[in-house]
Simulated scan of single mutants.
Amino acid sequence: MRLLVTGGAGFIGSHFIRYMLREYPGYQIVNVDSLTYAGNVANLTSVADVDGYQFIKADIRDKGQMAHIFSSNALDAVVHFAAETHVDRSIDAPSTFVETNVLGTQNLLECARAQDVKTFVHISTDEVYGTLGSDGYFTEETPLAPNSPYASSKASADFFVRSYYETYGMDTRITRCSNNYGPNQYPEKLIPVVINQAFKGEKIPLYGDGQNVRDWLHVYDHCTAIDRVLHKGRPGSVYNIGASNEWNNKDLVEEILTLMQVPLSQIESVPDRLGHDLRYAIDASKIREELGWEPIRNFRVGLRETIDWYVKQGENK
């Protein structure tokens, strides 16, 4: 199989490329990434010289670049990670999210259609569903009700992906995952922020009362789920990916500090984020039952390994 992976120098994309090259050594992977602030080719140093791996610096918003890449490679599938992802940044600059997440995705869909690419897997987020109360779970049938510019841009992209299946018969598949964690994540996200601030002995910001709940999924488990969707998923389907591992932010921050043996007094309450969703929780029964996927990483073990990775990076600076 010859894959085009977009955003492959980012956190999840780079883990996915390394995973795929390990699991499928005969596959060829073309990695397209514009190397914005969150993209780092160092994430792929270990595979840079692997036969069948190719990196191309290009922007998915550029129609000409994308058309050339698609026409120059006999692609079997696209796995589309490339996106602006940070909610806080979307509040400050929503137009950037529209340009990359909506128009960039539509560019890719059109290029894939023009070159008759067999399968298009779009990596989305549970944030498109909006927010939950203290009970209930997001299923694939939950209506989309995004509450941030970031989530709105991803929901819009999801609708475009769906429309190419319904209108053109393209084999598109959408995954919606819960919060990922693990090594190499860009340090603006919650878990890296907490670890890095704790390591430096600085205050750790906690939005509002810290009661916002997220379902945490190890990035390796996310990669195995995408693998299943790519190889066994049904055309036109949506698959939720979650670990049934809910933590509120306050408890998670305290757990990290306890593992790091850092006093909880370093936590500092800050004004809540605008439009901060209360709770996300995934019902992943569809992908479990239909594709036989299960998360395997124990959260506390994975969290400990993640802490150790970031601490080592801090010590080497």
Results as ranks from 00 to 15, higher is better:
residue 4 L to Y: 04
residue 305 E to P: 00
residue 259 L to V: 04
residue 275 G to V: 08
residue 241 I to F: 05
residue 184 N to I: 02
residue 120 F to C: 10
residue 236 G to S: 09
residue 147 N to I: 14
residue 63 K to E: 15
residue 230 L to P: 02
residue 155 A to E: 01
residue 315 E to C: 05
residue 256 I to E: 07
residue 114 A to N: 14
residue 201 G to P: 12
residue 268 E to H: 12
residue 201 G to H: 12
residue 175 T to P: 06
residue 24 Y to H: 13
residue 10 G to A: 02
residue 89 R to G: 01
residue 254 E to R: 13
residue 228 R to N: 05
residue 125 T to R: 11
residue 228 R to H: 10
residue 94 P to Q: 05
residue 93 A to Y: 03
residue 83 A to H: 08
residue 291 L to D: 11
residue 254 E to K: 15
residue 241 I to V: 15
residue 281 A to C: 11
residue 233 G to M: 01
residue 290 E to H: 00
residue 273 R to C: 02
residue 313 Q to P: 00
residue 210 G to L: 07
residue 209 D to L: 06
residue 60 I to R: 11
residue 137 Y to R: 15
residue 225 A to N: 07
residue 151 A to I: 09
residue 236 G to F: 11
residue 140 E to T: 13
residue 54 Q to P: 02
residue 8 G to D: 03
residue 178 S to V: 10
residue 122 H to I: 06
residue 53 Y to A: 03
residue 131 T to D: 14
residue 273 R to P: 00
residue 235 P to H: 07
residue 154 K to T: 02
residue 159 F to N: 08
residue 262 V to H: 12
residue 121 V to F: 03
residue 13 G to T: 04
residue 125 T to L: 08
residue 13 G to S: 01
residue 49 D to A: 13
residue 274 L to A: 15
residue 146 P to Q: 03
residue 115 Q to F: 10
residue 147 N to S: 02
residue 248 N to R: 05
residue 96 T to G: 14
residue 148 S to Y: 05
residue 3 L to S: 01
residue 107 N to S: 04
residue 5 V to C: 07
residue 308 D to H: 08
residue 193 V to Y: 01
residue 16 F to P: 00
residue 309 W to I: 03
residue 304 R to M: 04
residue 62 D to T: 08
residue 297 R to Q: 12
residue 130 G to V: 06
residue 63 K to W: 06
residue 312 K to W: 00
residue 242 G to N: 10
residue 253 V to I: 15
residue 149 P to K: 08
residue 113 R to V: 00
residue 195 I to C: 06
